[in-house]
Every structure is written in structure tokens, then in C-alpha cells.
């Protein structure tokens, strides 16, 4: 019995053993509980068009999206996806990407697709996967 215990103990130790890959410093642990994510209302000031779009998005967040509950199964949500898409490509290509995303969103069986799931069960689907540059496509979660 003792032997088994010792064996278990030793194996547990060796399992633990190496987790220091670099020299570390003190890391004070915060007592606070993490806050849930809310919509990001920050204005995008990278260009006139983007500013207008993010103002429109904020209006949508404020008057509709913040009031009608959590409806989008994707992360980023459709509106955030649209802005990302426009920023990454152009207004025309971004609109096409958004149209495709919108169609995928109204598909009742999107759970059968291959979207990776985030801890909050949302489907991770960033706009960078749809820019038609295969090097930008990533399947790993952020």
C-alpha cells in the first residue's frame, strides 16, 4: 500500500516537475472577479469612412443591440464582423463578407459547421478568415 502511495507521489512530482521555462518575477494575484464583456463602443478614427461606420455601429448598439438580448451565435457579432471586414478590406468587399456572414447566421444548422467554439459557446468566426488570403485563415482560438 505504502509502495503504491509512494509510486503515485513520485509520478505526481515528475508530472509537475518542469514548468519553469523562463525566470519569473512576483505576480500579484488580483482579488477582483472579471467583468463580463460588454459592447465595445470605441470609435475607430483610422479614417473618415471608418469613423462614420463606427458611429453608425454605436447607434445600432445603443438603440437596438443592447436592448434586444444576446441573439448572435457568433463572436465577433455580425455588426463587429462588418466593421472588421471593412477595415481589413474595403467597403465593397466588406459588404460582401457581411452578406455571406448574415446568410451563415440565419442558417439554423450552423452548429453542424466546423466553427471552433469559445468558452461561452459562441462560434469563433473572425473576418480575417474570409478575406480570400489563405495565409490569414486561422482555426486556433484567440
Amino acid at each position: 500500500m505504502k509502495f503504491i502511495f509512494m509510486l503515485f507521489f513520485l509520478s505526481a512530482v515528475s508530472l509537475f516537475a518542469q514548468n519553469e521555462f523562463v525566470k519569473w518575477e512576483a505576480a500579484p494575484a488580483s482579488y477582483e472577479i472579471n467583468n463580463a464583456d460588454r459592447h465595445d463602443y470605441t470609435l475607430d478614427r483610422s479614417g473618415f469612412g471608418m469613423t462614420i461606420l463606427s458611429v453608425l455601429r454605436n447607434g445600432y448598439y445603443f438603440f437596438v443591440s443592447d436592448l434586444d438580448g444576446d441573439n448572435c451565435a457568433f463572436s465577433p457579432s455580425c455588426s463587429a464582423f462588418f466593421l472588421q471586414a471593412v477595415k481589413e478590406t474595403s467597403i465593397f468587399k466588406g459588404a460582401l463578407m457581411f452578406a455571406d456572414r448574415f446568410t451563415r447566421d440565419i442558417n439554423f444548422f450552423k452548429g453542424l459547421n466546423h466553427y471552433p467554439q469559445l468558452p461561452d459557446r459562441k462560434f469563433y468566426d473572425p473576418s480575417s478568415n474570409y478575406t480570400l488570403h489563405s495565409a490569414k485563415i486561422k482555426f486556433n482560438l484567440p
Binding site: K93, A95, L96, A99, D100, R101, T103, H114, S134
Partner: peptide, 21 residues
Amino acid sequence: AFFYGGNIYGSAASAQIYNVR
């Protein structure tokens, strides 16, 4: 037009995603 165009674009993107996957 929105759905039609988006779908053509999305199909191309989907083929590419399929290949990368």
C-alpha cells in the same frame, strides 16, 4: 442582390477555408 453577391463571395471563401482546413 445582397444575398446573391454575398453568396458568390462566400462560396469562394468557403472553398479556400476548406482547403486550409
